[in-house]
């Protein structure tokens, strides 16, 4: 694109739960274990303490989340973050969108996220556009992603192993967005 989009620097948001989180002094041994609370690190975020009400799902989801977002090899980190951002924008999770837009910007610069926050989808490079189109279609309820989306990703040089990683990064935000946004507000 020849026209210039003002580069946006997003400031971090603060998330506040709608429901009372677990207080460390009241936590059960399993909740403490889930939150990985040690005597030297008692500061645990309100988000973690809210979800620690159900330690089983908190631990299992965190393990899966970390595998999907940080596993070695496969799709590069920035593209995983863009998948996460695409899902978060559709699902209306402002907090998740902010976190993962900033991660994407840290990894690759602010061009893509500035275009998205300016509503300038036309200014995305073809690879980012294919990722965003797929993220939106897979995030829709029910999902509308189809073979043509996969072909568009392949046309940008993405291998199926990388597309598999992208699917999971979009899907795990279909999960995380449905916790973060309904359970709290951010500002």
């Amino acid at each position: 694109m020849t026209d210039t989009i003002p580069q946006v620097t997003l400031k971090p948001l603060t998330w506040t739960p709608h429901l009372p989180p677990v207080e460390i002094e009241d936590a059960t041994p399993r909740q403490l274990e889930a939150m990985k609370v040690t005597p030297s690190a008692k500061k645990v975020s309100p988000y973690v303490r809210t979800l620690a009400h159900d330690p089983d799902s908190y631990v299992a989801r965190t393990v899966l989340f970390n595998a999907i977002m940080y596993a070695e090899g496969g799709l590069n980190r920035a593209d995983r973050e863009l998948g996460a951002l695409g899902a978060s924008l559709i699902n209306g999770c402002k907090y998740c969108a902010n976190v993962h837009a900033r991660q994407h910007a840290r990894l690759t610069g602010t061009a893509t996220t500035s275009a998205l926050y300016a509503g300038r989808r036309d200014a995305l490079n073809p690879r980012d556009a294919a990722i965003m189109d797929f993220a939106e279609a897979l995030t829709a309820t029910p999902p509308t992603a189809e073979q043509s989306h996969v072909e568009a990703l392949r046309a940008q040089g993405m291998e199926d192993a990388e597309i598999q990683d992208l699917i999971h990064s979009i899907a795990i935000f279909g999960w995380a967005n449905r916790l973060m946004h309904p359970l709290g507000h951010s500002d």
Partner: peptide, 26 residues
């Protein structure tokens, strides 16, 4: 705690839908 557990359950089902739909395209 029940609301948290139900929230995780609902969102997990939404995750499954997207993994199955996406991988089905591969």
């Amino acid at each position: 705690p029940q609301i948290i557990a139900l929230s995780e359950l609902l969102a997990f089902a939404c995750y499954q839908i997207r993994v199955v739909h996406g991988l089905g395209l591969l």
